[in-house]
Simulated assay, not measured.
Amino acid sequence: MTENAMLDGKVILVTGAGGGIGRDIALMAGAHGARVVVNDIGAALDGRGEDKGPAERVVEEIRSAGGTAVASLDSVAEPEGAQRIVSVALDAFGRLDGIVNNAGILRDAFFHKMSLEEWDRVLKVHLYGSFNVSRAAAPIFKEQQSGSLVHMTSTSGLIGNLAQANYSAAKLGLVGLSKSIALDMRRFGVRSNCIAPFAWSRMISSIKVDSPEQQERVARLQQMTPAKVAPLAVYLLSDRADSVTGQIFCVRNNEILLFSQPRPVRSVQREQGWTPEQIADHAMPALSASFHELDVSSDVFTWDPV
């Protein structure tokens, strides 16, 4: 346990914690005094298969370091599984103080080739999964008048990326979910925030490298380890962050960024209203100066990580 145990006495649940970002968050939470529920079904990157080993291995890592942890092997994709995951925390430790909704899968495909199954499965794990786990915990947080939720979003949703309509929709949907939870539950002392992580992990190791630009992007990502994301998550789970809610953060190696949220940037009006022709002749030319480019994440993050 670290000298400054920011999560001392808290029970923290981390989904998808068998590897990558989730593992590092679980390990750091344990090192900062939390009793940790390590949830992972041990599935392949596309969500198929099952291996109980990853969750158990992370539990052993936490215990070997002097911490306390238990494993949960249920899937977040169905409400019943999420309820069982939350029940593991209550059965093992008698309470639940924070959740990191990190579980995810990828099934990349260009939109005109994406199947309904590829669309549905990704949303079920990322968006439905985060709702299911958060909703299962909501009555507990309401009753105890406290709780912190950290949701893993992505610049694929916040900005955009090719061949990820399912993933992008789920990750941007998470931003709306987090904001709604923050609004609805602030009177109960419940906080909800998002992190968009840049980190080389199994989740992004499937990125297609078919150009020098993509090779350069992957090389930059490989410098960013999952361990860089964990400190912000641990902070947001702690009481030191009791005034932080409804925000979107990004971690990019040693950088922590705060993302903007959609707000009006320009307006036009006519006292008599608009005809389609007037919109074409006057409104769009005026508004177009503030149009966003059709860019992707790598177009925005052009500087090298520090």
Rank of each mutant, 00 (worst) to 15 (best):
M1D: 09
M1F: 13
T2I: 14
E3S: 14
N4V: 15
L7G: 00
D8Y: 07
D8C: 01
G9N: 07
G9I: 06
K10Y: 09
I12G: 00
I12D: 02
I12L: 01
G16Q: 05
G19I: 12
G20A: 10
I21S: 06
G22R: 01
R23T: 09
D24I: 08
D24R: 02
A26E: 05
L27Q: 05
L27D: 08
M28P: 05
H32G: 07
H32V: 10
R35V: 12
I41C: 07
I41L: 08
G42R: 06
G42M: 01
A44Q: 13
D46L: 00
D46S: 01
R48C: 12
G49R: 00
G49K: 09
D51S: 12
P54Q: 02
A55Y: 09
R57S: 13
E60C: 14
E61I: 14
E61M: 15
G67Y: 07
A69E: 05
A69Y: 09
V70W: 06
V70D: 00
S75E: 02
A77D: 04
A77S: 11
Q83I: 12
Q83R: 14
Q83S: 15
R84V: 01
V86M: 07
V86S: 01
S87R: 13
S87I: 07
A89R: 04
R95G: 12
L96R: 00
D97I: 10
G98Q: 08
N102C: 11
G104M: 10
I105L: 05
L106Y: 08
L106D: 04
R107C: 10
M114C: 08
E117W: 12
E118M: 12
R121Y: 11
V122Q: 02
L123D: 02
V125N: 06
N132W: 04
S134M: 08
A138K: 00
I140C: 05
F141H: 03
S148T: 05
S148D: 02
L149T: 02
T153P: 01
S156K: 04
L158F: 12
L158E: 04
A165L: 02
N166T: 01
Y167N: 04
K171W: 06
V175P: 05
I181E: 00
D184A: 14
M185A: 07
R186I: 15
G189Q: 03
F198C: 04
W200C: 03
S201E: 03
S206D: 11
S206F: 12
S206Q: 11
D210R: 07
S211G: 06
E213L: 11
Q214A: 15
E216C: 12
A219V: 10
R220M: 14
T225N: 13
T225W: 13
A227L: 00
A233R: 09
L237I: 03
R240T: 13
D242L: 11
V244Y: 02
T245K: 04
G246S: 13
I248W: 05
F249M: 08
C250Q: 13
C250E: 14
V251N: 02
V251S: 00
R252Q: 07
R252A: 06
V265D: 03
S267A: 14
G273P: 08
W274E: 11
T275G: 03
E277N: 12
E277C: 13
M284P: 13
P285M: 10
S288Y: 07
L294T: 15
V296M: 14
V300I: 15
F301L: 14
T302C: 11
T302D: 08
